[in-house]
């Protein structure tokens, strides 16, 4: 019988109130401002990620969606430890990882691998495919014999359809889809448990996207991988994600199971986003029109970040930030209008 008394396993990844601000590069002159009768130094900042809290449980694929500049890549880089948060905590398997030195993080590097949009940027152009794939294995297993390194790499190459005859060729000799395949193989050679993928399909053609997405699905099932999957493509989210976080101006406006989100989107922004996806159906769908365009994350709206474009915005929305509220179906929604029942 199952032992129900053990403490629940902590989520594999947890973000608690994570913030990331970037200082804007400005000359001294640009930063001097005359305000309240005095000359002051203005420190302008980009508020890329604002108070983001989320969890990813083992075996899940959490998709992060949103439009250009909403902070998706910044979230990915915060999780991967490539950026330090300005505030808040990043926890991995229960332990804080945001305040550790690079050396302390080394063992974690193996468990967590990152895949980028542009595989060309992540593959060293002067290394052969074999060198690129063997390097991380050797780095993380310094005691492994060369034959075993080669065997490990061969096994992964075969698993993800990287032809062993590619071994001695260089990245520029491959197409975008083949390179992404190689990048995935490289991530898998060290047997990670968690993959952070930042727009891994965005640079690929439809027929190649399908190949790469299948590869990632296969790896998920066969290796029990957990994913943080960043994308702006909602059809990919619907297919691949188990849960979805919708990001707007660095803030999570809705977090829900994938099926729930697509069946019953609640936040006015999520609704607009879903309605705007071009469909392969007759005629123009009646998409929800938003006023204006996404404001810059330099001067954030005081209240709800979506307030400037939202059809439901009222005085409260303009002054008070909505907090994520649990809905009856389990999703989290940060919207005053939803809370007040003003959105049907």
């Amino acid at each position: 019988m199952k032992d129900t008394m053990t403490a629940p396993e902590p989520p594999l990844l947890e973000l608690r109130g994570v913030e990331k601000r970037f200082a804007l590069d400005q000359s001294l002159l640009e930063r001097l401002r005359f305000r309240d009768g005095r000359l002051r130094m203005d420190r302008r900042e980009v508020h890329a990620v604002n108070n983001v809290s989320l969890t990813v449980n083992r075996g899940e694929a959490l998709c992060v969606v949103g439009e250009t500049g909403c902070g998706k890549s910044t979230v990915a880089r915060l999780v991967a430890g490539l950026l330090a948060p300005s505030a808040g905590e990043v926890r991995y398997a229960g332990a804080r990882i945001d305040n550790q030195s690079r050396r302390d993080l080394a063992p974690l590097r193996r468990r967590m691998q990152m895949i980028f949009q542009n595989p060309y940027a992540s593959l060293n152009p002067r290394m052969t495919i074999a060198q690129a794939l063997e390097e991380p294995v050797r780095y993380h297993n310094p005691d492994l014999a060369p034959v075993d390194v080669r065997a490990k790499v061969l096994e992964v190459m075969q698993a993800v359809g990287v032809d062993p005859s590619w071994r001695d060729r260089y990245p520029h000799e491959f197409s975008g889809g083949q390179r992404q395949r190689i990048a995935i193989a490289r991530a898998l050679t060290v047997d990670p448990e968690f993959i952070i993928a930042d727009e891994p399909l965005a640079a690929l053609d439809v027929s190649i996207q399908a190949q790469v997405l299948n590869l990632m699905l296969e790896a998920k099932v066969a290796r029990g991988l957990t994913y943080l999957f960043i994308t702006h493509d909602l059809s990919v989210v619907q297919h691949f994600g188990t849960r979805v976080a919708v990001l707007y101006l660095g803030t999570v406006c809705e977090l829900a199971d994938t099926a729930t989100l697509f069946a019953a989107p609640k936040h006015p922004y999520t609704r607009a986003l879903l309605s705007a996806v071009p469909q392969m159906r007759d005629g123009m769908p009646d998409h929800i029109r938003l006023k204006g365009e996404i404001p810059t994350p330099i001067t954030l709206p005081k209240g709800c970040p979506f307030e400037t474009r939202c059809a439901y915005a009222d005085q409260r929305c303009r002054v008070e930030k909505p907090r994520p509220q649990q809905q009856r179906d389990g999703s989290l929604v940060a919207c005053h209008a939803v809370e007040e029942g003003r959105v049907d």
Partner: peptide, 22 residues
């Protein structure tokens, strides 16, 4: 093949109908 390869053409979580090669 192009149309069938789209994620909308397959149930969530199932393997997509990919076109082999490039």
């Amino acid at each position: 093949g192009l149309i069938n390869a789209l994620p909308q053409q397959t149930l969530p979580g199932q393997m997509l109908k990919q076109i082999p090669g490039a």
